[in-house]
Design a protein around this nucleic acid. Structure first.
Lengths: 346, 346
DNA sequence: TTGAAAGCGCTAACAC
DNA sequence: GTGTTAGCGCTTTCAA
C-alpha cells in the first residue's frame, strides 16, 4: 500500500526558496506584491521539487474541487453498442484539461434511483463542482434534483419544456432531419417509417416530430414506431415487423446509426436490397456507417463540439471562465451516402 | 457561482446530537468505544442533516482520495468507432461505486507526451490513489512511469515482457483465437489472412502469433498485415489490397469487430460475397456484430468482467479490500455466426 | 466512554 | 514586499 511518502509540500518549496509559505502561494497563483527576485526563487524551487499544489488541499481550502461530474445511466448493452459518449467526453476533456479540471465519470444501469443517489452522493461528498448532463429526457428529473442540490449543470441537448436549465445545442439541431425528409421526398419515397428511440428522450421526439411534420407538409404520412429500448435488437425486431406490413415502407429513418445499421441488417436478411428495395437513414454519422456496405446515409452532428461547448459553459457558471458567446456548434446536416436511393414502387 | 453554502459539517452533526466531533467520527467510521445511546443520537443527527463526510477533507486528512484514474490516449476517431472502453469502465464502476470510489477519466489524443504529463499531473496534484491501465503496449512506458510516481496501477491485459506490473486477464486470453484457427481450418480455408492492429499493442501481436502458429501447425501460412492505425479506414484499405492479390484469401481475421465490419463492407463493395467468397472473423463480440448481415463470427471476451476484476485488484493494492483470489474472468471463445462458411476454392 | 486538540496542505486576511 | 496566522472539515492520538 502506497502513501504519498515523499511528495513535497508548499513548505518544502518555501524552505528551499528561503521565503514564506504565502510568498510561494502568491507566486504560484499569480497574485501581486512579489518582487521578481522572490518570484524567480520560488519558481525555481517549485520546479526543482516538482511541486504542484495539492488539489485536495486547494479544494478543502477553497471549497471547489476543480472537477466536474458526469453520470450516465444506460444499460451495459447500450454502452457496448454506441460509441456516442466517448466522443462527447473527449470534446469536454479538450476544454477541461487545460484549465486543470478533471472529469468524474459514473456509468450505471438504467436505474433512476441509483442515478439520483449518485448525484446526491457526489454533491454531499463534495466531489464535484458541477455536472455535465447528457440526453435530455421528457420530464427530466435531473434539473430539479440539481437545483435542490444547488449545483450548476449544463445539459447537452434541449431541455424539456423550455426549462431554464443551462444547455448547449447545435446551431440548428433539426436541420439534418429536415434535410432527410427533403432527400427522401426528392427520391420519390411516399411510404416512409420513422423508428425512434424510447419516447422519454427529448431529442428523439423532436426529431421524429420534425421529420413527420416535414413529410406531412408534402402530403406523406410516415408510420412511426418507438423502440422501447434504444438498441439494435429493437431496431431489428421493429424493422422486421415493418417490412412484413402489406404497405411496407420504401424508406426507414432511425434514431441513431447503430439502430440503422441493425435495421439494414434485418432488411437484408429478409431479402430486401438496400437501397434498391429500402432506403435507410441513420443519425449521428459515426465512422462505422461510412465503412459499411452500403455506406449509411446519416445526419451528422458534431458531438465533440457539443461536449466542448458544454464544458466551457459549465466552467463559466463556475466563475472559472469569463462570460462570452457560446461557441458555434455546427448545424446538423445530412450526409448522403449509399443507403438511400430512388423509391421503387411496386 | 455556487458555494457550498449550506452543506452541513461534522460539527453541525455533533452539535445536533449533543456530542463531540470525535464521537461523530467514531460512529460514522465504525470504530469502537461508543455507547449505543451516543451512536444512535449521532446516526439520527447525521440522517436528519443528510450529512456525509466531505471527501475532500477525508482525503486531505488521510492522504487518500478514494478515487482512481484512467487515462486513455486514442484518437477521437477511434473512440467514435469502438465502444470497447465504455463496457470496461462500466465493469469497473460496478466494484468502485459500492466502495465509495470514484473514477477520474481522461481522454486524449494519441500523444505520448500529453499522456505521461497527465499521469504526472494526476499524481502530483494528488487527485487519484491509483490507476487502471488499458491496452497493454509493446515497450509500455507506463509501468516505469507509475513506479517512478509510486502509484499502484492495474493493467487490463498482459504486460509486455512479463513485467511484474499487476494485471488481470481472461482465464484463457488466446483460446478464442485458437478456436478461430480451428474453425477456419475445419471449413477448409487454406488461404487466410490476419489483419492486426498496430504492432505496438501486446494483445494484437499475441493474438496474431497465436493464430499464425495454429495455422502453421496445420500446414497453412497466413498472410499477415498490420494496420498502422487501429481503425476502420485502415481495415477497408487493407482488405481491398488483400482482395486484389492473385492468391487472395478465402478468409480474413481482424483484430477487432469494427475493423471486421469495415473489412466486410469493403469485400461486399468489391463484389465478393460474405461468407460465400470470403469468410470474416472479428474480435470482441460487440453487439452490433450480431445484428449485422451477415452476422459476424467473433471472439468474445468479457470486457465488463475484466474491468471489474481490475478495479478489485487495484482496491486490494490500495489496502481497501482483503486479499483474495482474482475473480474468474471467463475464457475468450469463438462465437460462430454467419460471416464464416466453407471455403470455395476456385 | 468521551472530548480537546493537533494537523493534513493550502490560501487569504492581516500585520509588519 | 513579505511573513504570520487562522482556518477549510475531517480523523486520530491522548487525557480525562
Amino acid at each position: 500500500m502506497r502513501r504519498n511518502a515523499d511528495q513535497p509540500t508548499i513548505d518544502d518549496v518555501a524552505a528551499l526558496a528561503g521565503v514564506s509559505r504565502s510568498a510561494v502561494s502568491k507566486v504560484m497563483n499569480g497574485r501581486g506584491g512579489i518582487s521578481p527576485k522572490t518570484a524567480t526563487a520560488v519558481r525555481e524551487a517549485a520546479a526543482k521539487l516538482k511541486w504542484v499544489p495539492s488539489a485536495t488541499a486547494v479544494a478543502l481550502r477553497g471549497s471547489r474541487t476543480r472537477s466536474v461530474g458526469m453520470v450516465i445511466a444506460r444499460s451495459t448493452d447500450l454502452l457496448a453498442t454506441d460509441p456516442y459518449f466517448a466522443v462527447m467526453i473527449s470534446g469536454a476533456e479538450q476544454v477541461l484539461a487545460p484549465r486543470g479540471y478533471g472529469l468524474q465519470l459514473h456509468l450505471m444501469g438504467d436505474d433512476p434511483e441509483a442515478e439520483s443517489a449518485t448525484y446526491r452522493k457526489l454533491v454531499r461528498e463534495r466531489r464535484v463542482d458541477g455536472f455535465l448532463l447528457t440526453e435530455s429526457r421528457i420530464g427530466d428529473p435531473r434539473f430539479a434534483l440539481l437545483r435542490e442540490l444547488d449545483r450548476p449543470a449544463v445539459l447537452i441537448g434541449i431541455p424539456w419544456r423550455d426549462d431554464p436549465q443551462p444547455h448547449v445545442q447545435s446551431a440548428d439541431p433539426l436541420r439534418g432531419m429536415l434535410d432527410a425528409a427533403r432527400h427522401l421526398l426528392d427520391l420519390g419515397h411516399r411510404r416512409v417509417a420513422y423508428v425512434s428511440g424510447p419516447d422519454d428522450r427529448v431529442h428523439t421526439v423532436q426529431r421524429r416530430e420534425t421529420f413527420v411534420e416535414a413529410m406531412r407538409a408534402a402530403g406523406v404520412t410516415p408510420a412511426t414506431v418507438a423502440a422501447r429500448r434504444f438498441d439494435s435488437l429493437e431496431a431489428r425486431t421493429i424493422t422486421e415487423e415493418l417490412l412484413r406490413r402489406p404497405d411496407r415502407p420504401t424508406a426507414i429513418v432511425y434514431a441513431n446509426d447503430m439502430m440503422a445499421l441493425a435495421g439494414m441488417g434485418a432488411a437484408q436478411r429478409a431479402g430486401i436490397d438496400v437501397p434498391g428495395g429500402l432506403s435507410v437513414v441513420g443519425h449521428d454519422d459515426l465512422p462505422i456507417g461510412a465503412w459499411h456496405y452500403p455506406a449509411l446515409t446519416s445526419v451528422a452532428q458534431d458531438l465533440a463540439s457539443l461536449g466542448a461547448a458544454a464544458a466551457l459553459t459549465l466552467l463559466r457558471l463556475l466563475g472559472e471562465e469569463p462570460p462570452g458567446p457560446i461557441p458555434d456548434i455546427p448545424p446538423t446536416r445530412l450526409i448522403v451516402r449509399e443507403s438511400t436511393a430512388k423509391a421503387t414502387h411496386q
